[in-house]
């Protein structure tokens, strides 16, 4: 398993965690993507955004759907907490492309890996090319990071 220095955590509830995995599975082997938003680090909004690339190795959020989600966050006073996408055949660690294109330093990048039978969700800050990892907690318990 590829690792990065761990700094901080991100807390999800079970319903959100399960919804991320269900979304990832819904279009496998293609990658899916979306946003989590809320207040004070507590997620209360989940936006599934179509992957305009519909690819097994690349994602790009549909521009209009992405804008609608961002506007909804503004209108509801929510803040963007996390940007998630799936890796259907590789581990839950940012790829070189993920790092190169990471343009939201204030968001946590969540990656849902379907590589193994048990889905793995890991979280990262990607700031100016530097990756640090956050421990993912689900209902207060640390989520397993997977075997590889």
């Amino acid at each position: 398993m590829t690792r990065a220095e761990i700094q901080g955590r991100i807390d999800l509830d079970r319903q959100t965690f399960d919804a991320l995995v269900a979304h990832a599975r819904s279009d496998a082997p293609y990658e899916v993507c979306g946003f989590l938003a809320g207040a004070d680090g507590q997620v209360n909004r989940h936006y599934q955004i179509p992957n305009a690339a519909r690819s097994m190795t690349f994602y790009t959020m549909d521009p209009k759907a992405m804008l609608r989600a961002m506007n909804d966050m503004d209108d509801s006073g929510s803040e963007l907490i996390a940007i998630y996408h799936s890796h259907t055949h590789t581990e839950a660690f940012p790829s070189a492309t993920d790092v190169e294109l990471a343009a939201y330093p204030d968001a946590v990048y969540l990656i849902v890996s379907l590589q193994d039978d048990t889905p793995v969700v890991r979280g990262f800050d990607i700031v100016e090319g530097k990756i640090t990892e956050r421990s993912v907690f689900v209902d207060g318990a640390q989520a397993p990071g997977g075997n590889r």
Binding site: Y59, M66, Y104
Partner: peptide
């Protein structure tokens, strides 16, 4: 006019 960096990766 609104500007948003694309959200994309691999």
């Amino acid at each position: 006019v609104s500007i948003l960096p694309a959200v994309a990766g691999g």
